[in-house]
Amino acid sequence: MKLRLFPVVLLLLLTGIFSALKAQVTVKASIDSTHILIGDQIKLLLEIEKPKDLDVQFPQIPDTFSTHVEVVNRSKIDTVKLDSKVREKLIQRLTITSFDSGIHQIPSFFFKMKEGKILDSAATLSLAFQVLTMKIDTAKGPVDIKVPYSAPVTLKEIIPYILGLILIGAIIFFIFYYLKWKKKKIPLFVKAEKPDDPPHVIALRELDRIKTQKLWQQEKVKQYYSEVSDTIRVYIEKRFDIPAMEFTSAETIGTFRQNKNMADENSLDQLQNILSQADLVKFAKYKPLPDDNNQTLMNAYSFVNQTKKEDVKTPEAPAAEPVTEEVAVP
């Protein structure tokens, strides 16, 4: 008798365990629309709410359901923690479509569960939706195939073009800017230049150099006079703004004679001596005496010193006297 009752008891026990397991799990399949136009898409949502520690296997979604319904896209399975913290919800979003008109079935989806050694499954309800087709006006006769609808342009799509345009614009601007600067012959990055020395400083430095080179002593008389006269001409050009390097000696002297405030008579005589002596040496093979050579250099020094323009120094403020406070000694 006891042996006969054993299978019955086992069956009742197992049924009770499975019922308890299923009671902890809720599965659901839903669609966002039950009517679509042919080719339109429907969002299909698969959800399962379950205890956190229960292993669940999501159903394997095929590419098509019943040849009429196609799966366009599958999302990853998303996990949402529920308030109770011991339960969670798993969600998968599918995008489906159909290109056949009529009512189509979405079959049930089976979620497989495993708790310990016990296996079970839970199924969603099957769903249905209707696919509507376009009305065809047969009175018009055959018509051409319509071109695909142009989808509205999204920002994401046009951003590369916008960036490209900005880049091209920037390149054109820099090229234009560079050419403009190049035309002006001004370097793009200018290093602050050290201000030039005053003309008389440069001239005196040059005359010192000529003196130490001892050119005429080495029979280089022509070079000696060329360098002395060029030094004086460069000095005149910078000091008086007279283009002495492009003027002949007579023109330079003539300009000084016209503007008598530039140099006194003595300086002018010295200048005339330097230039005329230099012209004779340079152009007429004249060989002056050694004294004349020295005198020409002396005249050059003297001319520069007498006509130099000293920098006007601003008078320094008198040093402030230390302030002493008399402290009354009690």
């Binding site: 002949t248 000696s249 012209d279 152009f283």
Partner: peptide, 10 residues
């Protein structure tokens, strides 16, 4: 003059 100076050229 027995020699040429720049003034002559100019």
């Amino acid at each position: 003059r027995g020699y040429v100076i720049p003034e002559d050229v100019r």
